[in-house]
């Protein structure tokens, strides 16, 4: 089956695929924003100011556990974006001639995918804090909380800037 035959088969469904793609992008970008800004960050700030406070550590661990759960929406949406994006590329007959799209794909492939892979690990796999605490490994748990906070510190500016850039490029197609 050639790309052209796939394009012909998908073309009538372009707008429906775009609907799913946009919906997934919305969930991916915004689903954790309130939990992050209004719950996780204030508690972590307080912990960083008072790192030995047992009450704050308990609250920090609880918030982190809830955040690991809440980020599931984002992490379901992201693969949907990765599947529907190439389908749109094929169905719409796009090519490397669309510079805005190439820049967007560079951001997704080089910035967002590595970032999300780290996030998957920290939230659901080896770095899942609830599971580690259940296995009674306090040092590993503390190390993973620190690793996750490092991750959030480093990626927050990048997520904000590049998420906006992705949406801006897709909507305005400036180049």
């Amino acid at each position: 089956m050639t790309i052209e035959s796939i394009r012909v088969a998908l073309a009538p469904w372009y707008l429906q695929i775009k609907f799913v793609h946009l919906l997934a992008v919305m969930v991916w970008i915004w689903s954790t924003s309130v939990a992050y800004m209004s719950y996780l960050v204030p508690v972590f700030k307080a912990w960083r100011r008072n790192p030995g406070d047992r009450g704050l550590i308990a609250m920090r661990d609880w918030v982190m556990d809830r955040f690991d759960e809440g980020v599931i929406y984002e992490h379901v949406a992201f693969p949907v974006i990765l599947v529907t994006g190439p389908l749109l590329y094929i169905a719409g007959g796009w090519s490397t001639g669309a510079a805005w799209l190439m820049l967007k794909l560079l951001v997704v492939a080089g910035v967002m995918v590595p970032m999300e892979l780290c996030d998957y690990y920290l939230s659901h796999f080896g770095g899942n804090k609830r599971r580690i605490r259940g296995s009674d490994r306090p040092q590993r748990h503390e190390a993973m909380v620190h690793a996750h906070w490092w991750f959030l510190l480093v990626t927050t500016p990048a997520v904000a800037v590049f998420s906006l850039l992705i949406v801006f490029l897709a909507v305005t197609k400036p180049i």
Binding site: F44, K45, G55, A58, M59
Partner: peptide, 25 residues
């Protein structure tokens, strides 16, 4: 984000008893 800016003097940390819903906590 890391609480490094500002003096932090406006923050108060009075102790409260909080019942967290998850058994593990």
């Amino acid at each position: 984000l890391d609480g490094q800016l500002g003096s932090g003097s406006r923050w108060s940390l009075p102790e409260r008893i909080v019942r967290l819903p998850e058994r593990g906590h």
